[in-house]
């Protein structure tokens, strides 16, 4: 089976000027992964970890400065402007804040139908009928089409963003924190909608989030990102029950729980997120990791650790970092169903 999305050695850095010094921020540093048909992959990490930059680079909304991106077997990186426009039919993106990702002066219906119009996929009355169909599929009413974005609620706006992304029937959708601007109850509705649409429209998702609970609810596989690099990857349940990288443990410990017994077992995350400005070659978690040692200053690779598991940690492979089975709450307890 060919992956719908293949990412190889993706990099994106920004030049900074601090006083007279020129420095480089490695926002995305050698990121590789793929998304299979029908799969949902979650990319999780703190703010500043580079996950949104990955999202923008995938669709070349921002130009990556290294690496390659393939949609199916067609390469997106290096594609001409015309070819890029055509490829974007097959890969779409839903943004985090629905109140900022919709044009405030365009009616909702016009915004959803716009891609059809742009790619000449339909005209006149057919645009409207397909737009209404998509509106319905995303759980909106036909009369919403004639409203402006500010007349809708946050959840409704995000459904509009989704409808606009899906109307060209892409196979792959990047969801860049689509629920983090929403209330918890609205969040749950949208997540359920995403799952339903995935089945009905045969979609693959890259779901970007900082919320592990949400990631667990929606994704079959999780990539953990820290300071521009993927530090751990694995199937969702395995990653939750047997996290291998110290950073993944920190993230898991940050999920609030309602059991005092479990709360006691937790480590409290210390230190600030690392920002990869002119980073040293070694592990980027050194300042926050309780297992940090001299060997961590050597360059670290993302290596196989068992079937479908990848870890970027020297201590894990030398056995210094113990593997601990975690007591895991069932998904229905972590996410509002």
């Amino acid at each position: 089976m060919i992956p719908v999305l293949t990412v190889r050695h993706l990099s994106r850095s920004y030049r900074l000027r601090q006083g007279w010094r020129r420095r480089t921020l490695h926002a995305v540093d050698d990121v590789s992964f793929e998304v299979m048909p029908g799969e949902t992959v979650a990319l999780v990490g703190e703010s500043g970890s580079g996950k949104s930059t990955v999202a923008r680079c995938l669709l070349r909304l921002e130009e990556p400065d290294g690496g390659r991106v393939f949609l199916g077997d067609e390469e997106l990186t290096g594609a001409s402007a015309a070819r890029l426009r055509r490829l974007r039919l097959r890969a779409q993106i839903v943004f985090q804040d629905p109140s900022e990702s919709l044009n405030p002066r365009m009616k909702v219906g016009a915004q959803i139908g716009e891609p059809l119009h742009l790619h000449r996929l339909a005209r006149g009355r057919e645009v409207r009928s397909r737009m209404l169909e998509m509106l319905d599929l995303c759980g909106l009413e036909p009369q919403h089409a004639d409203l402006y974005p500010h007349q809708l609620s946050g959840g409704q706006r995000q459904r509009v963003g989704l409808a606009r992304a899906l109307i060209t029937r892409p196979r792959f959708v990047v969801l860049d924190e689509p629920t983090s601007a929403l209330d918890v109850s609205v969040q749950a509705q949208l997540l359920n909608l995403l799952r339903r649409l995935q089945r009905e429209l045969d979609l693959s998702y890259l779901f970007i989030t900082h919320d592990l609970g949400v990631a667990r609810w929606i994704a079959q596989r999780i990539l953990v990102m820290y300071a521009g690099q993927i530090v751990e990857a694995g199937p969702t349940e395995e990653l939750f029950s047997r996290p291998l990288h110290p950073y993944t443990r920190l993230l898991l410990d940050a999920i609030p729980v309602d059991s005092p017994r479990m709360r006691r077992q937790r480590e409290s995350p210390a230190g600030e997120p690392y920002i990869a400005i002119d980073p040293a070659p070694g592990c980027r978690l050194i300042g926050r990791c309780r297992w940090a040692a001299a060997e961590c200053q050597a360059p670290v690779e993302l290596l196989d650790s068992g079937p479908r598991r990848l870890v970027r940690c020297v201590g894990h492979f030398s056995g210094r970092v113990p593997v601990v089975e975690r007591e895991v709450l069932s998904p229905s307890q972590t996410v509002m169903d």
């Binding site: 909304l61 993106i93 405030p104 716009e114 606009r164």
Partner: peptide, 11 residues
């Protein structure tokens, strides 16, 4: 962001 979104849908 809606300008980025406009780019993403192929404007």
């Amino acid at each position: 962001q809606y300008v980025t979104a406009a780019r993403a849908i192929g404007n």
